[in-house]
Each structure stands twice: as structure tokens, then as C-alpha cells.
């Protein structure tokens, strides 16, 4: 078993726990923005796609890398944009305390 695998597994398990504990506390009211935000964060795979496309090892890897860059980056842009649009709509009552 390669050494990298074990350290990645540590990171995966710990991140999973952190994710579980943090996301459990997200207001159920915000579950739709949660999903669009995690989509945008997940789009960080764009960094791997950039490296695949930019190393230009073969025509195939450039094509596949570029497709991945476009797909992931659209998620990043679109995900942050719509999450912020949604969150801007959540407002408290104007005369809450009287």
C-alpha cells in the first residue's frame, strides 16, 4: 500500500468528521444554499484539471483537462453566484421588537 494513501486516508477521515460536525449545525432553512455552496467548494477540482490541461502531455489529456476545467469552473462561478443571490434574500422582520 503506497504511503501517500495512508496519509490521504487520515485527511479524508478527519475532514469527513469535521464536515459532519459543521454541516450538522447548518440551519435547515439554508439547506439549498448549503448544497450550492458545497458544489462551488467541490469545484476546487479545477486546480487538478488546470494541471492536467497545462502539462500538455498529450492531445487527449489537453482535451479532457480543458473539459474538466470548463465544467468545474462553471460550478465554481455559478455556485458562488447563486448562493450569494439566495442568501441576500433572507431578511428578518423589520419591526421584530416593538
Amino acid at each position: 500500500m503506497p504511503e501517500g494513501f495512508v496519509s490521504n486516508l487520515y485527511v479524508f477521515v478527519l475532514a469527513g468528521f469535521v464536515g459532519f460536525e459543521v454541516i450538522r449545525r447548518v440551519s435547515p432553512m439554508l439547506h439549498t444554499p448549503l448544497m450550492s455552496l458545497t458544489n462551488a467548494l467541490d469545484a476546487i477540482v479545477v486546480v487538478a484539471a488546470i494541471i492536467i490541461a497545462g502539462r500538455a502531455e498529450s492531445t487527449l489529456s489537453i482535451v479532457l483537462g480543458a473539459v474538466a476545467v470548463a465544467a468545474a469552473f462553471s460550478n465554481m462561478i455559478g455556485g458562488f453566484l447563486i448562493t450569494d443571490r439566495m442568501l441576500r434574500m433572507f431578511k428578518l422582520s423589520r419591526h421584530k421588537k416593538q
Binding site: G4, S7, N8, V11, F12, A15, G16, V18, G19, F20, V22, I23, R24, H31, L34, M35, T38, N39, L41, D42, I44, V45, V47, A48
Partner: peptide
């Protein structure tokens, strides 16, 4: 790819989807 940033982002997204 041995990329920890992807492992973490994926784990966060995955656990969010799972909880939902």
C-alpha cells in the same frame, strides 16, 4: 492525484450530501 485539497473538499461535499 495525491492531492489533499481535493480529499478535504470532496469529504466536506460528500458528508454534506450524506447528511441531507
Amino acid at each position: 492525484l495525491n492531492s489533499k485539497v481535493l480529499v478535504v473538499a470532496g469529504a466536506l461535499d460528500g458528508s454534506s450530501g450524506f447528511i441531507l
